[in-house]
């Protein structure tokens, strides 16, 4: 009983926080609303006794959102907190896609004849996860490794294109007069 109530509450929190992402006018709030949504999902995973996956979801998502906030605030073409904004691009298309995906998933959840449970879960799911990673799912590890390395290198090459031989100047070069005084502005551009 308590678990059901808790599950419903968490589900509502997850959905409500997800909606809040698109309703708020602040990049900071949008980011952390998303984080709250993920935390609720993580807590739901805990209810399925997926201890490791649940806790690690919370861990990773809060961390990623904290980092994402940096980028969201930096790269949006306008003030990230004090201007009305819309988080929606291509409203019709995204509505269509979102609705479609929801219908497919919901239909799947309701229509697929789920098999009855065979056997019992392992006493410690984290251990079986570790055994799977190190054992028969080793290929995952082996692919992830070079993938992460490539990510690391390419991300840095993109973010820090000057490399070691040309350190960043402390300040931008003095501006030519052609651009004129900076007007206060929102030059647009996506986020």
């Amino acid at each position: 009983m308590l678990t059901t109530v808790l599950f419903i509450v968490l589900a509502l929190v997850a959905v409500a926080a997800g909606i809040a992402v698109f309703r708020t006018d602040s990049m900071a709030r949008a980011t952390y609303a998303l984080a709250a949504s993920f935390v609720a999902v993580g807590a739901m995973l805990l209810q399925f006794n997926l201890d490791y996956i649940g806790v690690v979801t919370i861990l990773m998502m809060v961390m990623e959102m904290a980092i994402m906030a940096i980028f969201m605030i930096m790269f949006m073409g306008m003030n990230p907190a004090l201007m009305p904004m819309s988080m929606v691009h291509n409203k019709r298309g995204s509505l269509l896609i979102a609705g479609g995906v929801f219908l497919v998933l919901a239909a799947g959840a309701l229509l697929v004849p789920w098999p009855a449970r065979r056997g019992a879960p392992a006493p410690d799911l984290t251990v079986s996860l570790g055994e799977a990673i190190m054992g028969n799912k080793m290929l995952v590890m082996l692919t992830v490794s070079p993938l992460l390395f490539a990510t690391l290198v390419s991300a840095l090459v993109l973010a820090n294109p000057r490399g070691r031989y040309r350190p960043y100047p402390k300040l931008p070069a003095p501006k030519q007069s052609e651009s004129g005084p900076e007007h206060h502005g929102h030059t647009g551009g996506g986020h």
Partner: peptide, 9 residues
């Protein structure tokens, strides 16, 4: 006009 939410000219 959510389609171009960035345009606050």
């Amino acid at each position: 006009d959510g389609d171009d939410g960035m345009d606050h000219g």
